[in-house]
C-alpha cells in the first residue's frame, strides 16, 4: 500500500494533486473576496477606481505568492487566474481572454525559474497582476457602451468624472499601474512572507 502510494506520488509529482487543487480553489476564494472588498470600498471616488490595480496588487500579492509557493507546480497561477476572470472579467470577452493570458504569462515566468527560483516567483506576480488591467480594457475598446452603462448605474456626474479622467489612451497608464502594483505587491509579499510565514513553516 505504502509502496503503491509513493509510486503514484512520484509519477504525478509534476501534475497537480487533489490537495493542491483544493489549495488553489481556496486561495482563489480569498483573492476574489479581498479584491471585491477593495474595489467596492475604493470605487466611490473615480480616481481610486482607476488606481485599483495598485491597491489590489498591494494586498493580493501576498495571497497569490502564498498560493504559488505552496503548490510549486504548473497550474496554481492558471487556476487562480481563471477563477479571477470568471468573477471579475465576465463583462467582455476580450477582458476574459486578457486575464487568462496574464495568468499564462505568469506561469511562463515561473517555468523559466524552473519552479524553484524565488526571484521568478516574485516576478511572476508582476505578470499576474496585469489581469487587474483587463476589466478596464473596455474603457478603450468599448468606450461608448461603458460610459452609457456608467450613466445608468452611477449617474451622469460619476460618468462625466470617469470620462474626464479617462481619455481613450487611459488603458496604457492603467497597464503601468498594474505593473507598479505588481512590483509593490511582490515586494510587500516577500517581506511579509519572510517575516511571518517562513518562520511558521507554512511555505
Amino acid at each position: 500500500m505504502a509502496k503503491k502510494e509513493i509510486a503514484a506520488a512520484g509519477a504525478s509529482s509534476k501534475k497537480l494533486r487533489t490537495k493542491e487543487l483544493i489549495y488553489a480553489g481556496a486561495f482563489g476564494a480569498l483573492y476574489i473576496v479581498l479584491m471585491l472588498v477593495i474595489v467596492l470600498g475604493t470605487s466611490m471616488i473615480p480616481v481610486l477606481y482607476l488606481l485599483a490595480p495598485i491597491t489590489v496588487g498591494l494586498v493580493c500579492g501576498t495571497v497569490y505568492l502564498l498560493c504559488v509557493l505552496k503548490v510549486k507546480k504548473f497550474g496554481a497561477a492558471l487556476i487562480l487566474g481563471v477563477l479571477f476572470a470568471l468573477c471579475a472579467c465576465s463583462n467582455a470577452w476580450f477582458s476574459f481572454v486578457g486575464a487568462i493570458a496574464a495568468a499564462l504569462l505568469a506561469e511562463l515566468v515561473i517555468k523559466l525559474g524552473k519552479y524553484k527560483s524565488k526571484m521568478m516567483y516574485l516576478l511572476s506576480f508582476v505578470a499576474f497582476n496585469l489581469n487587474m488591467a483587463c476589466p478596464y480594457m473596455m474603457l478603450s475598446f468599448a468606450r461608448d457602451s461603458f460610459l452609457k452603462r456608467s450613466v445608468e448605474y452611477y449617474g451622469q456626474e460619476y460618468a462625466d468624472g470617469i470620462a474626464k479622467l479617462a481619455p481613450t489612451w487611459i488603458f496604457f497608464p492603467i497597464l503601468g499601474f498594474a505593473v507598479i502594483g505588481g512590483i509593490l505587491g511582490a515586494l510587500l509579499a516577500n517581506a511579509l512572507i519572510k517575516k511571518h510565514f517562513a518562520k511558521a513553516g507554512v511555505v
Binding site: 487543487l21 483544493i22 488553489a24 480553489g25 481556496a26 476564494a29 480569498l30 473576496v33 487556476i79 477563477l83
Partner: peptide, 22 residues
C-alpha cells in the same frame, strides 16, 4: 474533469468561510 470541478466547488465552499474569518 475533476481538475476543473474541484477548484470551482472549493471556491464556492470557501467564500462564506473567508467572510466568517474576516
Amino acid at each position: 474533469p475533476t481538475k476543473i470541478v474541484i477548484p470551482i466547488a472549493v471556491m464556492f465552499r470557501f467564500i462564506p468561510t473567508v467572510g466568517e474569518e474576516w
